[in-house]
Amino acid sequence: MSSEQQPGVIVVDRGHPATRDGRGLVRGIGVVLRHLRDAFGPRLERPEQTSGVFTVQYPEERTPLPEASRNLPILLFDDDSGHELCTSCYQCERICPPQVIHITQARDPASGKAVPAIDEFILEYDACMSCGLCAEVCPFDAIKMDHAFELSTATRDPLTVDRVGLARPVSYYAQLAPQAWAEARDGAMKKLQGSRRRRTGTVGMTPARAAPAPADAPAAPIADAAPAGEPAGGEPVPASDAKAARLAAIRARNAAATDAPAPDAAPAPAGEPVGGEPMPAGDAKAARLAAIRARNAARQREGGDA
């Protein structure tokens, strides 16, 4: 063969002579039957295997996710103290391409000064694009990408997640991504120590300790059942109402900052909520929303004047 080869001529060696007169059909059937036989044998798992069933029967069987797999962001808190790693630096809120992160910074109840902790942290899971930039940019290793992906719901509401819903203990993340956490742990914990020195009372402590733990999070040891750190002056409200109220408050504050009329979320007139007075659920909620909005607007104006 090599003697016949001319420059510029490529002789293709198929490993078998040209298939004619139905021999290709016979060979094809042979291949197919080999696969049929092997499909009842061992599963296709090693790369050098060329046949065998590769189906993963999903809800019962799962392939392990790689450590760097990312789906939606979560907020970490320290297992022992319950302190959140987040310091309200707003880096994630700024970088978020679809702008689904909303943060309010905590203030010292006594002095009213800002402290490196969050008052509220709201993330709209339904609009999050899972880019992971928030976790990438976070200087405190406070926001990380979770592996959980089975988040289908029948309604939108559960996909607006607050500080409680986002909270996961550090041990949970360490188990998800042991290598990444091993690299980040020392720096993150050191920075948390620094933040804790400037926090007072329960500021910066995760309210998730009081709330039921997320189903997919490992059961964290509940050292101190600290009450949920509600915004100053707020009374304890049911979880769903609280969430709606917080979102409304943030929207209202933003609206006030731009001096535009507030979005028509609540029809009730603004007024101070009368503590303890029984009201119909809808009215109570509307009134609370309006109160929060008014207070926040006022605070914004004070801040602007000062």
Binding site: H35, A39, F40, V53, T55
Partner: peptide, 10 residues
């Protein structure tokens, strides 16, 4: 079912 097995599926 048969075609699936031949294509390494279930």
């Amino acid at each position: 079912r048969l075609i699936a097995r031949m294509q390494d599926r279930l």
